[in-house]
Design a protein around this nucleic acid. Sequence first.
DNA 1: CCTAACTTGTGAAGAAATTCACAAGCCCTG
DNA 2: CAGGGCTTGTGAATTTCTTCACAAGTTAGG
Lengths: 208, 208
Amino acid sequence: MKHIAESTVRRLSLYLLFLEEFEARGLDTISSTELAARGGTTSTQVRKDLSFFGSFGKRGLGYPVVELASRIRQILGVEREWSVVIVGAGKIGLALAQYRGFAQRGFQVRAVYDSDPAKIGTRSDGFVIRALDSLPSDARVEPVDIAVLAVPAPAVQRVADLVVDAGVRAILNFAPHQLKVPAHVAVKTVNMAMELEGLSFVLTNHDD
Amino acid sequence: MKHIAESTVRRLSLYLLFLEEFEARGLDTISSTELAARGGTTSTQVRKDLSFFGSFGKRGLGYPVVELASRIRQILGVEREWSVVIVGAGKIGLALAQYRGFAQRGFQVRAVYDSDPAKIGTRSDGFVIRALDSLPSDARVEPVDIAVLAVPAPAVQRVADLVVDAGVRAILNFAPHQLKVPAHVAVKTVNMAMELEGLSFVLTNHDD
DNA sequence: CCTAACTTGTGAAGAAATTCACAAGCCCTG
DNA sequence: CAGGGCTTGTGAATTTCTTCACAAGTTAGG
């Protein structure tokens, strides 16, 4: 398959979000124009994005909502379940552990890890915090697809190395630190301060 | 000024992160190559990004670490303080309220709001949860630059409308919902499930 | 002071992403 | 069953972003 741009994948996620809203409202079909209006993009962009994966619409009519949603889920790989672990039982880690948005999309949080002895063994939101050291052996028993890292920046590279060694092939990193991982491991970093900086830039350089 | 790409701004944030590391390590100068290696980009990209804003380096030598960091802070508008409020005193909102990464960059969390009467008035991490209804009058007394929205998706548009009416000009949205706001308001949405979907896509379509 | 080894800054080239423009298909109405 | 009004799918054009290539400036060493 031709290389798909990251931006296209992000938009597909958005489209899926809207399709599920439309699905809930019982609509049968939706046009690229409606989908675009909802997501702040253009109808051409919607059609181009979808065209990379096939032809899902009917000319003159639009796209069948349920079917398109299902196809996008397939494309994104979210029609199956993914096994997720959270590393870091701080405020952010625990908030993520109980976040419903993950489960809704088939991301099953299996366990929460921490290296702080004071936290290990304690219960929070139905999770018993496990020792980080036990992650590799746990992962052998029950493979982990995605590790969410919510640990302090100075520790995150070490933790990333550990989860990669444990066979994890995708990492969602919340620490403000750029990870170095082998090529076969996918990483996304969410840097919340960076997002605010983006807003700060706009506020500062906005000519009004 | 020429229009600056979002991707450039994101990279500037990254450069600043690295520069502060270098600063802490006491290095005087840094080359575009070193900066690039650290952030997974190319030296040309670094120089091009910086060139939009001026010439900060010395040929043959590199960039003065402290000065470049300071200039980037200026460009991003983070050499000043920004007044931030959090709306939504759920797990995620409270985690964000106490997140140190914000304060480190001059983003001062002034207050946490919620509309749940059971939460209003309770104390958490040093914040007394305020009634969402009081946000507009609070904002008149002490202006709010940025609102961070950590409320359920169905409520977020209503909340966004409220904070925009209260004079907020930038929103960081954590709800999985695309906001509609007036043109003069800057919005960034962090959709955590969407990030996982991006990883899911890579895991699914990765040919190995 | 001259040369070698770096490094920046930047037009120009190249690649990638988005938008344009339109043929082709579908549905509804009369 | 013909025509009008929509809508998709997609090559081509355009715009945007990245990379190339190199002149020009700096330092260090002999």
